[in-house]
Design a protein around this nucleic acid. Structure first.
Lengths: 203, 203, 203, 203
DNA sequence: CATGAATGAGCCTTCATTCAT
DNA sequence: CATGAATGAAGGCTCATTCAT
């Protein structure tokens, strides 16, 4: 049974993830976080020491690690498809338990003191994983630089839907990121990317 | 001959573009902008009424319009290549006269009161232009939804290099966006995208 | 055998004396005191009611009372010398068990609610004792006002070394209050004062 | 004619001197200072940048420098008497224009970031001046260490009346630091000290 | 017409204190 | 009886904005 303290801590972390994801680190205020968590203004400093450390704790990389599931026996192509679909769900699904990726996506554009931590623990493994996958698909002849750019092409396509969401909502007000739409997007990105990757292999 | 007032106004706009591009709307301070423009701290409100309106005025879409140059006689494929190269130069070249795209790129993630204007006057025409180009390449059989996602795939690849710059600098400290690198990136994105697009056409 | 509670109380008092002596009443924090006493942050309020009352309890005047030891048979001059030496040891010796005088010395400049108590129980007896000693030395002809000022002259010389310590450390970084130095200081103050006092007697 | 800004600045400095002298650096609040100066809370940071820098500016050492007036032709003894009298007036006279010494006296017990400045610019010259004077009185045979302790004895006697004021008011409620009393105190300290000093000379 | 000065709301943080267990 | 958690007032400071000249 969680203690009262643990509950408040958890509520603070959840509220922090929401507010950081919505307004970025700078735009988020401790007061707003505490208000949402129904806690006192001083609660953040009591439980985490500072706004910075709250952000550091709010980050957890489990969701990202789950993306790198092994799927033994599956071909690299299938594993890439699965990765893209899971990543898009993480990024776009409103019901996603983890706002992890959104917080990170926000911070990418406005480095905070914890960006180093985010990069080392969250993003670098992701890039490595994707780099390995791409390597398996395009084969050994392809240079590191090219493989890297292929990773960026895949990630760029995925992240665009998150970053550009406010714009896309204005351009296409009818757009909704429901399960079917997310699935369709993921399939498109996977098709688009695999076509290009396989062309590099044969090339 | 511009009056002293007009000069101050112009310096404020230029300074605003630099600072907004560097720190985002929220991160930018009126004081910093005025300091760079060597103007009084009250100058922004005097000339533009508020920080919001300064941002609105600081935006000009000429650079974006220039991306949509006609290039009569060129094939759609070539025009897409040219677009991607010019866009990447605009986004990444430190010497780029216009920080326009960076301001917009920054704001996409944190809607401000001027996002509507940015979308209508800057981004929508760009999407339309790219949509037309993609349509010419993939042909008429392809649905609007698919064409749209192709546009997103291209833009996503381009914008990634801008959005993820702080992360990429940490992952690959040796990375520099010099002319050759930008050219190589643009070529990669064009190759990657055209391969995928042409496959859709034939498909 | 003291109960656990009693031990905590004692540790709190000892920690309070250290922290009050080091940072003054205002500069001291309840948290720091509790941390040093390895007690809960609420312990101070639990055991003493408030920070104010903790200070009141932390004061004990035994060390001061010991200064007024009788030394039967000794001349007033010798008793003054002994008093000055013991007082300087109390004020300056790092190994002094009692930080009592330092707490009081700190508070003199910034009246707290407990200053009345300090004055009545600690300082007034000290002044009286020293006044009596001075009276014995200078004789009956000297007015009360003059005798009082002589007391102030002696106390002022002693307290200076404590009050001005941060300044003196900057002016004379080589200065250390070791046993020999304290002895030398006490001898100087006693010589200086007795010369002046005896001159008043003969005058 | 002073500008409005200059007036506010001056009022802030005067208020700062009063509040710093009354409550010390830590005890003083920017809000209280601004309230007394009838200025906005942000005025201190606007004009001085921070509370620290306000303290640094609030200090001016003119009054202390005036203590070291030359008095050509006067004997060292007379110059010491004059110094003590002027110092006591500075310390005790309510009507004294400069609260300089009191701010410094307060800070001695609770080092702030500006203590170094206070010591270098204000106190060190004072100690040097007094050391020279004492040297002239006691002659060359006396060691530096002894001369230093004589300086401390004089300063200690003077500062006592300031430091111990809250205590003395409680012990002797009838005490008032009017002109006559200050004069009497100064005379006592001078007599007391000169007697001791001259004894060292002959000794 | 333009500016230095002033404003007040709001930021993160610290603190002594109180509460629920 | 004792504690970890929670509180809210207050701290110094920053900011976009407004005002008086």
């Amino acid at each position: 049974m969680p203690s009262g303290s643990e509950q408040t801590r958890t509520r603070l972390l959840e509220a922090a993830r929401e507010v950081f994801a919505a307004h970025g680190f700078q735009g988020a205020t401790v007061r707003e976080i505490c208000r949402r968590a129904e806690a006192n203004v001083a609660a953040v400093n009591y439980h985490f020491g500072s706004k910075d450390e709250l952000l550091a704790e709010a980050l957890n990389f489990n969701a990202l690690k789950a993306l790198q599931a092994a799927h033994p026996g599956a071909t690299p192509e299938v594993r890439l498809r699965l990765f893209i679909r899971d990543f898009m769900l993480l990024l776009l699904d409103e019901k996603s338990a983890s706002r992890q990726c959104r917080i990170m996506a926000r911070e990418l554009a406005d480095p905070t003191p914890v960006l180093d931590q985010i990069v080392k623990q969250g993003i670098a493994p992701l890039h490595d994983f994707l780099g390995g996958l791409v390597g398996e698909i395009v084969g050994e002849q392809v240079s590191d630089a090219v493989r890297l750019r292929c990773v960026f092409s895949i990630l760029g396509q995925c992240l665009f839907y998150y970053h550009a969401e406010p714009v896309l909502q204005r351009l296409h007000p009818e757009l909704r990121y429901d399960a079917a739409e997310i699935e369709a997007i993921a399939t498109h990105i996977a098709d688009f990317s695999l076509t290009a990757l396989l062309a590099k292999k044969s090339g």
